[in-house]
Nucleic acid binder design. Structure first.
Lengths: 218, 218
DNA sequence: TGAGTTTGTATCATTTTTGTAACAGGGGAC
DNA sequence: GTCCCCTGTTACAAAAATGATACAAACTCA
């Protein structure tokens, strides 16, 4: 699961980006100023940082070098016409930049591109006898398309991106349902059963007693 | 089929790039110096030009402006450490750059990215049994002109430019209506129905439950 | 101005997804 | 070995999403 930090002081833009990234299957945090951004960077591991150059308090370049020191790839988000900033940003080591206003499709393409470059994500995932296309949201097993529902697909993605990992129900719920887990619900279990059955993963998704489930590759 | 011109004097590198691009499904020409490059650019239409900066005879920047005048996207190929060149290249209008030595996967990703970005300005698109002229905004199906409305045309364009992709309603709305999607509106759906009917794409535009729609080529 | 288009909302029918409940069975803890 | 909690399974009903149709507002073009 890829985690992206958005550092952007304009709330509407931050929200727009966040919504779209979440839809595309990423996990997102937002920081509204440089200080908050630096805090979040130090507290969590992120796979990518979208960074607005013009920020209150700490400016973008300082944050850039901080992120780089943590080996987090950075994509600059610049306002239109600030060509000098683009150049400066690239010199300073940003991995990409995008100019506001931008097409959401372009943003997604660039995000994917960066993550792919840093070997974090792929459009196609081949695992066991499954071929997963994360862009078309299709899964094939031995060439035959599986009819997975929205949640089943997200659940499968979580498993294949975290193989051999004991995933807590809480973790699963929060990733797939994107809302806090209130405990005491069989929802996750039921979806796991359905996924197991549809994808023929009875042997590969195993229950971990009192924890949740684990995806086995063997 | 996308056609790519590689202008590169080092034969081993040119061959390596060519081989990989062909394998990835592109059609390739190679020019070994600037003069040959300029000739080929004038003789054929290319969708992308990969351009080495350090060339005998004509240097990369002159070729860049020539390619730009023909509206051919250009990606600079620079040797490592030539940071100044990167900056200069971007300023001069290159659409992307890549540093030697590079990962083939990265090259392919970047090529794809550029083509995706520029595909949007292609005048003629032939797909399935449709002929689309993006300038006159006319669509023919088996030679017969379809009477599409403004929004229907934009919607069709979005689909044909993103085939086999699960497009979210948000994405569709923001692209075609060019304003933020506020959720909970059947507008996109309705336009999809109309487009399906008028263009006879009932089989090709399929609903992706809880997501939006997907354009199928098969 | 007025007829014809285009566009978006509202409504209803149908299909699909999702989550709760209830019960059965099995694996740990002791 | 026994008991109990946890997980597997099935059924069902609520909720949500999509397709289809009708209609009204907005816009176009003569």
């Amino acid at each position: 699961m890829n985690k992206i930090l958005i550092i952007e002081d304009e709330e509407s833009i931050a929200t727009l980006i966040k919504m779209n990234l979440i839809k595309a299957g990423y996990q997102c945090d937002v920081a509204y100023d440089g200080a908050e951004g630096a805090d979040k960077l130090s507290e969590n591991h992120y796979d990518l940082c979208l960074l607005d150059i013009m920020l209150p308090e700490i400016n973008g370049y300082e944050l850039l070098s901080y992120a780089k020191s943590l080996e987090v790839p950075v994509m600059f988000v610049t306002a239109k016409g600030e060509t000098q900033d683009k150049v400066k940003g690239l010199k300073a080591g940003a991995d990409d930049y995008i100019t506001k206003p931008f097409e959401i499709l372009e943003l997604l393409a660039r995000v994917e591109n960066i993550l792919r470059r840093f070997h974090k994500t792929e459009q196609y995932i081949k695992i066991l006898d499954l071929d997963i296309d994360t862009v078309s949201r299709e899964v094939r097993k031995n060439g035959k398309v599986l009819k997975l529902t929205y949640k089943e697909f997200d659940l499968l993605l979580l498993f294949v991106r975290n193989p051999e990992t004991a995933l807590y129900r809480e973790t699963i719920y929060e990733h797939v349902w994107d809302s806090p887990y209130l405990g005491d619900s069989r929802t996750v279990d039921l979806h796991v059963q359905r996924l197991r059955k549809k994808a023929g993963l009875e042997k590969n998704i195993e229950a971990v007693y009192k924890v949740g489930y684990r995806f086995r590759l063997r």
